[in-house]
């Protein structure tokens, strides 16, 4: 490979932020496949980072005072309490899976905006979701978001009969037990949140008469 194949000058422009998005994508693709350009770009990035450091003396691994500042600021935005992440998890999963329900117009959309979109990354590593599949001729547009640790789940549905119940398919012997909780409608969207459920392997939606209208693919990827 000749030197001309490596976009050496553009690597410097990349690091300084002078390239447009298209060209940056080209460089990303090249750097992905080319170790020498990856390290050359890394060197330029280190120089730009040194310039930034000189301009903004900010948190460093080595500086306790600066570190505390970083912690304080991130603490404001990072809920420590898992329970407080539930709404966000729901929003995040929805946002990442837009099109499944086709709606993000829940209260969660505000949570997503006000809180960290970033958190959905953390969230999706701790939480999972599963789609309900209709049984027979029923039309069901619903999914469930749940904590991999089994501490809560929330069923979200669109245009659902609010009298439907959620039944839990347990891990031991796949016995379904109906939950007494009711869906709460918010416009076309209904949600049903369970804070401390029994261990589950899947979920069913049932009519008031106990007929199963939909169930999740079992077992959903719970626990890890």
């Amino acid at each position: 490979m000749s030197a001309g194949d490596h976009p050496l000058e553009d690597l410097a422009l990349y690091a300084l932020g002078m390239l447009d998005t298209d060209r940056r994508d080209d460089i990303d693709a090249h750097v992905d496949a080319c170790s020498s350009c990856a390290s050359a770009l890394g060197a330029h990035e280190a120089t730009v980072a040194a310039m930034v450091d000189a301009e903004f003396p900010t948190p460093e691994l080595t500086s306790d005072a600066r570190r505390r500042l970083a912690h304080r600021r991130s603490a404001m935005r990072t809920p420590r309490n898992i329970a407080s992440l539930r709404g966000l998890a729901v929003a995040a999963v929805l946002a990442l899976a837009v099109g499944v329900l086709g709606v993000v117009d829940l209260r969660q959309r505000d949570a997503l905006r006000d809180d960290d979109v970033f958190l959905s990354a953390i969230v999706t590593s701790h939480f999972a979701h599963a789609q309900f599949r209709a049984i027979g001729g029923a039309h069901v547009d619903a999914k469930v978001v749940y904590d991999r640790g089994g501490r809560w789940y929330e069923v979200i549905a669109r245009d659902i009969d609010p009298s439907y119940r959620v039944a839990v398919v347990t891990r031991d012997g796949a016995i379904a037990r109906e939950r007494p909780e009711r869906f709460v409608a918010r416009g076309r969207t209904s949600v049903l949140a369970i804070e401390t459920p029994e261990a589950f392997a899947g979920f069913e939606l049932r009519t008031r008469d106990g007929d199963v209208v939909a169930r999740t693919a079992t077992p959903s990827k719970g626990g890890r």
Binding site: A15, G17, A38, S39, L41, G42, A43, E45, V48
Partner: peptide, 13 residues
């Protein structure tokens, strides 16, 4: 990726 060098610099850029 690790060949890129410091993650911190990478993120800054």
């Amino acid at each position: 990726r690790l060949e890129r060098g410091a993650l911190r610099s990478y993120l800054i850029v």
